[in-house]
């Protein structure tokens, strides 16, 4: 694999008030790599990926996405958000728009695609996540699993080079988790660069190039799946794994 550096985080720190939520994060992610981040709640894993597209602002250190350093300059933020797609735990579809309009909104207004082209492309991605038959419904009419797949399609419509997933299956009923994970596995096999915050260890084993364990704002351990599950070094990792496996 050609190792083109996509995301670089150097000595990143963040505080919420007094709380040190990210403590000296160093991370390099190459093109096509799939990273799974896990850890107890409050460990800073969501905050970490939300810093990558500036939903949260880091206070120290550097974050460089595809050669663009993330600063307060709105142009750098816009450029990076154009390259980075995000999927949320609560889907966050736009309830006043049909699924198709959810998907074509940003391509039309941000990418300036002609309407017809944007909708055509949206249908293409909806087909890929297998809800093209629901395209004209509103989000409230869909099941949780369908909504999350629509949210993935919405992110893909911007043709991002990196996808962030923030606990994409945590809000789903158990029988719907698989349909979402299947879509994500397909995406991984297509070569997308992915950072996934999840507790789905089966998914991690199947697709991750590297699993990162975080606790108290720090990266405690970062290893390939086999070593991670078989030879965890840190006590905290061992405790965590014993609790969730």
């Amino acid at each position: 694999m050609s190792s083109e550096l996509m995301i670089e985080m150097k000595n990143v720190h963040k505080w919420f008030g007094e709380l040190h939520v990210l403590n000296d994060i160093n991370l390099e992610i190459n093109k096509g790599e799939k990273i799974v981040i896990c850890g107890p709640s409050g460990s800073g894993k969501s905050t970490l990926i939300r810093c990558i597209n500036r939903l949260e602002e880091h206070q120290r250190g550097n974050i460089i996405v595809e050669g663009t350093e993330l600063t307060n300059d709105s142009r750098s933020i816009e450029r990076i958000r154009g390259e980075v797609g995000m999927v949320f735990q609560q889907f966050n579809l736009f309830p006043h728009l049909s699924i198709l309009d959810n998907c074509s909104l940003a391509p039309i207004w941000v990418r300036k695609l002609p309407k017809a082209e944007a909708k055509e492309k949206a249908m293409e991605y909806l087909k890929r996540v297998q809800i093209d038959d629901q395209a004209h419904k509103y989000p409230a009419q869909l099941s949780g699993g369908q909504q999350q797949r629509a949210a993935i399609a919405r992110a893909l419509c911007m043709e991002p080079r990196i996808m962030l997933f923030d606990e994409p299956t945590s809000a789903l009923d158990p029988e719907m988790i698989k349909e979402v994970l299947d879509v994500m596995v397909g995406l991984a096999q297509g070569g997308m660069t992915m950072i996934v915050v999840t507790h789905e260890m089966g998914f991690a084993k199947e697709v991750a190039d590297s699993i990162i364990f975080m606790d108290e704002g720090q990266i405690v351990e970062a290893k390939n799946p086999k070593d991670f599950f078989d030879n965890p070094e840190s006590e905290r990792t061992k405790t965590f794994l014993s609790q969730i496996l």
Partner: peptide, 13 residues
């Protein structure tokens, strides 16, 4: 909900 703001920002609006 905050998520609506975040989702809009994430798609680059």
């Amino acid at each position: 909900p905050k998520g609506q703001y975040e989702a809009s920002q994430a798609v680059g609006l």
